[in-house]
Structure formats: structure tokens, C-alpha cells
Nucleic acid binder design. Structure first.
Lengths: 166, 166
DNA sequence: GAAGCATAGTTGAGCGTTGAACTATTCCGC
DNA sequence: GCGGAATAGTTCAACGCTCAACTATGCTTC
């Protein structure tokens, strides 16, 4: 958290406070999202030694034909800042799961490449991950609720990040 | 992330992989949740100097009659570990927004007390926070989608944390 | 009332994230 | 092809979080 406060213009007039029903809806979403992410991350980390953040990086790389990707593209794909991704890839390099390679077409660029060891680690973690998502999310919801979840997510994504609905 | 891997029993048999539609629903939820939390936290932090985590602590304290709460109760309310909350309260103490006070009924306990300065900081941040939640969330959704969001959240909360539906 | 155990909270070290400053390369206009 | 702007990625320092170890108080049972 930076401490520099730059007060930007807020809409004038009384704040549009949430009423009791809106509060409940907001809290239900916030708490469920935090608890679910926390539970899945904890479960995956404890069982496989791979945090959800690292898992996402490995998945992204594994889904490309050559199992490699430009650093910036990988950062976007993982909703990560470049700095954060750079640190994370360094740590994955130490584990021998990813290596860096200068990009042939652009001398400024780097490619993150998934190693065989990295792919094996991902193969080990994937069943644990999918089982967690099933157990904590899909198994708890009706088909209609799942459809609503998707509709809700896609609506928000259109607003938050128009480029992310690939 | 700890690196100690303790392989616990997974259900035997083939993993129940997600099909294409399930993948889309899962990703829509995950990305929207991450982007929304990120956007709200960033916006609040930049405009007020108060992160969402700190904001939640101040709100919890402000909602009690005496503007004070036991550390553990506050941790539960904020979906926080005790350690995390203890660190956070220390940092809020440095800002003069919270102070600690030994609990009269239980010598082991501590009360976190919201100071006048802390309350003032909260009053300044609240309009910014609610405006963010409106702009990024409620304003993007139909009444039906809002109802679905609540239903979804409450369903998950019953599974994840049966005590959290006050 | 002492021993053993449970509970409340803090501390410290290590890891991860953040935002700003920095290096290196490429692109653009002339 | 030169100078300046833009882009790609890394590094650093400060902050925050996690887990485990620790202190201190209260509870229970004999």
C-alpha cells in the first residue's frame, strides 16, 4: 500500500450508500470469493507444493504449442504485473520448472519456457486442482447457479477488462 | 507458500476434468473476482491511502457500540488469521487509528479500539469505497443478476463457512 | 494449589507483492 | 543513420502475509 493520497474527483452529492439488501449481496459475494480462493490455494499448496499463482503460470505455458510464452503475454494471461511475474518466473527457474530464453524476433523480449520437470510438476498438480474446484465450487451449485455464475462473471469481465473474453 | 508436500488421499479413479463449458464458467468467475477485488482495492488505496484490508478492520470496529472488539473476533470478522490481524493492528496503531487495550474480563485478551482519528479516516474513505462498489459492481448488473450473485454467494458460504451467515 | 492443558495473542524469519527507478532494445520521423 | 520516444523486462526497497515458535493467562482436576 502506498501512502501517497491523490484525491481524485468523486461524483458530487450524497454517496449512494448500499441499503440492507445490497449490503447482504455485496458481503455474500466478497466473503465467498475470498474464502473460496483461499481454500483452493491452501489445498493446492499443501498437497502439491504449488501455489495457485504458480499453477496458473505453468498452465498458461503448457497450453501453448511450444510450451513457451513472452513474459508480457504471460503476465497478462495471469492477471499479473510484469514485476510480479518476473519475480515468480525467477523462483520457478530456481525449481527448474521454467527457464528464460531471449526472444529471437525482439532483442528486448524474453521467453519463459516450461521445462520437462515443470510439465511433470503440472501433471501431478492438475488432478488435485480440478478436484478442489469440483469439490468446493461445482459440486455445491445447481446447473442453473453455474450458468448464473458464468453470466455474472462474463458481464463483469466485459466491464473490467474488455480484452479478457478470449 | 510452504514447500513441504504432504500428499493426502485424493479420490481414486480418473480426475473429473472440466469440460469446455465448465472451463469457461470457472475462468469467468476466477478472472472477474480477481479483477474486481484488485480494481476496488487499488482505487480505494490510491484515493484514500487505506487498503481494502485496513478498511474492513476499521468498518468492523466502527460497527460495534463501543467501537472496540476482541482481537480474535475481529480476525474472524475480517477473514484474517490472528497473526495477520495482529500485524495489521500494529500498523494501524502506528497511524494512530487504532489502539490496543487489555481486556478486563480476560487477562489474556486484547481489545482493538478505534480512535477518533481512525473514525475520521473511515468517514473520509467510506464514500470512495461505496462509489467504487457501485461503479464496478452494482451499476454493471441487472436486479436479477444481483439477486443471483447473492444466492450464489450465500450457497457457497454455507459450504465454506457455515458460521459466516450471521 | 499445583500440574497439565487450552486459549489469546505476539513475534520473527522467509517468502511474495508493489511501485518506482533503471537498463536495454526497438520504433519512428526526419 | 541519428535522436528521441516507446516498449520489454529487471531490480530494489518497503510493505504485507504466512507459518511456526513463543509468552502469558485462564481453566480443570486431583
Amino acid at each position: 500500500m502506498t501512502s501517497s493520497v491523490s484525491p481524485q474527483p468523486l461524483p458530487a452529492g450524497e454517496p449512494r450508500w448500499l441499503d440492507a439488501e445490497e449490503q447482504k449481496a455485496w458481503r455474500a459475494w466478497l466473503y465467498s470469493a475470498q474464502l473460496l480462493q483461499d481454500r483452493l490455494d491452501r489445498d493446492l499448496t499443501q498437497r502439491t507444493g504449488i501455489s495457485h499463482a504458480y499453477y496458473e503460470i505453468l498452465v498458461a505455458l503448457s497450453e501453448t504449442p511450444e510450451r513457451m510464452m513472452r513474459m508480457s503475454e504471460l503476465a497478462d494471461r495471469c492477471l499479473s504485473s510484469r514485476s510480479r511475474l518476473s519475480h515468480a518466473v525467477s523462483r520457478l527457474e530456481e525449481r527448474g520448472w521454467v527457464r528464460r530464453q531471449v526472444c529471437a524476433e525482439d532483442g528486448r523480449g524474453q521467453l519463459a519456457v516450461l521445462t520437462e520437470e515443470g510439465f511433470a510438476a503440472l501433471e501431478g498438480a492438475a488432478p488435485v486442482h480440478v478436484e478442489g474446484v469440483r469439490r468446493e465450487l461445482f459440486d455445491q451449485l445447481s446447473p442453473e447457479q453455474i450458468e448464473n455464475m458464468r453470466d455474472f462473471g462474463e458481464t463483469l469481465l466485459r466491464h473490467l477488462d474488455p480484452n479478457s473474453l478470449r
